[in-house]
Each structure stands twice: as C-alpha cells, then as structure tokens.
Computed example of a mutant assay.
Amino acid sequence: MRRREPGGRVESLGPRQTSPGRDESPEERADRRWNELLQEVRVIQTGVQILFGFLLTVVFTPRFTTLGPTDRTIYVVTVLLGAATTGALIGTVTFHRLVTGHRLKPETVYWASRLALVGIVLLLATVTSALLLILRIAMGNSAVPWVVAGLVAWFMVCWFGLPAWALHRYSSRG
C-alpha cells in the first residue's frame, strides 16, 4: 500500500503502519489529527471573532474622530491584521470542506495545520497592534512600546517558546 505525502512524495505503508504508542492506520491518524486541529481552531477563533468584532465597531465611536494620523494608521493596520487572521483560521475549515470526499485527509490536515499556524502568527501581530493602539491612547507616554514589547515577548514564550522547548526536551528521549 502506498500513500502520497504532501508535496508529492510517496510513502510505502505496508498492510498497517502504526504511530508509536497508537494502533491506528494513516487514515485513522489523519482523522484524529483533524479533530484535534478543529478543536484548537474553535478555541482560538472565538477569541479572534470577539477581538475583530470589537475592532470593527471602533470606527463608529465619537472618540475615533479625535485620533491623530498615527493612531488611525495603527487602527487600520490592526483591522487588516484581524481580517487576515480571520481568513487564515476560517481557511482551515474551508480547505477541508472543498477537498472532502477526494481521499485527501492526510494532505488536508497538513495544509490546514499550516493555515492555523499562520493564523496564530497573524493573531500575534493583531494583538500587538491592538495593544499598541489601546495603550497609546490610555497611557500616552514613552513606556508604551516597552510594555507592548514585554507582552509580545511573553506571548512568544507561551505560544512558541514553551512548545519548542517541550519538543526539544521530550522528543530527544527517543
């Protein structure tokens, strides 16, 4: 039995190839990974929808007209980043919907996972931009970039650093 990998590689699977620690076929593994990805996207998408919805209403508030050109630019960038984030995260589901029934579940999981990761990176940029705008208005002092940089560093540790550390530490046990 052979299976096409993302990117065109063909992998020989034999009668039943299992993942370490699990007795599952490649199709079962793809189904499990898809369900896990879908749950992750549901969690992050809720937060993104709330943030993006809030951003869309700001322009209609009386205070918006008092913003200077820099703050308006930051606002526009934030809205565009929020839209791009929403697009990437919803793209995971539409990718699946468009290829369903074509026996491409492993490839779907592969590409949808990458879209979700792009969405997470875009979310980091959106939150950074939103924090910059909000703190510029709320604090209006030179500490704002430092506060935002500190929070971005914290997000980087939580979202990327700890998973990378765990991967390095625990996957080398082999």
Rank of each mutant, 00 (worst) to 15 (best):
Arg63Glu: 14
Thr128Arg: 01
Asp71His: 04
Glu27Arg: 00
Phe52Cys: 10
Ser113Ile: 05
Ala116Phe: 15
Ala116Pro: 06
Ala84Gln: 04
Pro145Thr: 09
His102Ser: 12
Leu37Arg: 01
Asp23Leu: 04
Ala149Lys: 06
Pro62Gly: 11
Gly8Glu: 13
Trp34Phe: 02
Ala138Gln: 11
Thr46Ile: 14
Ile137Asn: 01
Ala149Asp: 06
Thr128Met: 07
Pro106Leu: 04
Ser142Ile: 05
Met1Ser: 13
Trp159Cys: 02
Gly53Val: 10
Pro69Asn: 13
Pro62Ile: 12
Ala112Gly: 11
Gly82Phe: 02
Gln49Lys: 00
Asn141Phe: 01
Ala143Cys: 00
Ala84Tyr: 01
Asp71Gln: 11
Leu98Lys: 08
Val148Asp: 12
Arg63Asn: 07
Leu133Met: 05
Trp146Asn: 07
Thr66His: 14
Val157Pro: 09
Ala83Gln: 04
Met1Glu: 13
Arg2Tyr: 14
Val148Ala: 09
Arg29His: 12
Asp31Asn: 02
Trp165Leu: 15
Pro26His: 06
Leu37Cys: 05
Ala130Phe: 09
Ala143His: 05
Thr70Ile: 14
Gly68Phe: 02
Gly53Ser: 10
Ala166Leu: 11
Val58Ser: 07
Ala88Gln: 04
Glu107Gln: 13
Phe95Asp: 06
Ala164Tyr: 06
Trp146Val: 08
Ala164Leu: 13
Asn141Leu: 00
Ser113Asn: 14
Ala30Ser: 08
Tyr170Gln: 09
Ala116Cys: 11
Tyr170Cys: 06
Lys105Thr: 07
Leu162Lys: 02
Gly87Phe: 03
Thr86Tyr: 13
Val43Gly: 08
Pro15Ala: 12
Glu107Asp: 10
Arg32Lys: 12
Leu81Ile: 02
Thr92His: 04
Ser142Gly: 07
Phe155Arg: 01
Val127Trp: 05
Thr92Gln: 11
Ser172Leu: 13
Glu40Ser: 08
Ser19Gln: 08
Trp165Ile: 13
Ser113Lys: 03
Leu67Thr: 03
Leu132Gly: 00
Ser25Pro: 08
Met139His: 01
Arg29Asp: 15
Trp165Thr: 03
Gly91Phe: 04
Ala138Leu: 15
Gln45Glu: 13
Arg114Gly: 14
Trp34Gln: 01
Val109Pro: 03
Leu131Ile: 00
Gly82Pro: 07
Gly87Pro: 02
Ala84Leu: 12
Ile44Cys: 04
Val93Gln: 06
Gly140Cys: 04
Asp71Leu: 07
Pro15Gln: 14
Phe95Tyr: 13
Leu13Asn: 10
Leu67Asn: 02
Trp34Ser: 00
Gly174Gln: 10
Arg32Asp: 13
Arg22Gln: 11
Val144Arg: 08
Gly14Met: 14
Phe60Gly: 11
Pro6Met: 12
Arg97Ser: 07
Lys105Ser: 05
Gly119Ser: 12
Leu80Cys: 10
